[in-house]
Amino acid sequence: MADLSPPEQQLLREKWQPLLEEHWVAGGESVLWVELPAQGYVGSVVNQRLEVPHAPKSEVRESLVDAPDWPLPSEQVTAGAFLDDEWADDPSIMWWVHAAAQERDAVLLGDHIANVPGQAFLVLSTNRLAVVVAEKQLAATEPQGPASAGLFGRARAAVHQVQRAAGELAPSLSEDVPVSYFEVPLSRIARMSAARLGRSIPRSAFLRIDFADGSTVFTRTDSGSAEAKAMEFTHLRSRP
Rank of each mutant, 00 (worst) to 15 (best):
V97H: 06
V159R: 05
G118C: 07
A88Q: 12
V159I: 04
A79N: 14
Q119H: 10
R239E: 15
D69G: 08
A134G: 06
G150D: 08
A157V: 15
F206L: 03
E14A: 15
K57R: 07
L64V: 01
Q48S: 08
S204I: 00
A81Y: 04
E75Q: 08
D90C: 12
E86A: 07
V46E: 15
R128M: 08
A130H: 06
S63N: 10
A106E: 09
G224E: 13
G153R: 01
T126Y: 09
A147I: 05
Q161Y: 06
R237L: 12
W16H: 07
E103T: 02
S204Q: 14
E14G: 12
T141I: 13
V46M: 13
Q161G: 12
P37N: 06
G110P: 02
R196H: 05
K136D: 10
R164E: 13
H160K: 03
R199A: 07
D3T: 06
A170E: 15
T141F: 11
V132W: 08
R61G: 08
Q102C: 01
H98P: 04
E51V: 03
D90R: 03
P73M: 00
G118Q: 03
V132P: 11
I113Q: 05
L197H: 08
S148G: 06
D69W: 01
L151A: 05
H98I: 00
G167I: 08
V131R: 04
V45L: 14
P7K: 00
S172F: 14
K15F: 13
L72Y: 02
R237I: 11
L12C: 12
R61Y: 04
E183S: 13
F218I: 00
R188N: 06
V77I: 10
R128T: 12
T126A: 05
L236K: 05
A139I: 04
L186K: 09
F218R: 02
K57C: 13
N127A: 10
P18G: 02
G198D: 06
L138K: 03
W70C: 07
A88T: 06
D213G: 07
Q39L: 15
D84F: 10
L4V: 01
E227M: 04
A130Y: 07
H112F: 09
V65P: 04
V97Q: 10
R199D: 15
P18E: 07
L4E: 03
L138G: 03
A120L: 02
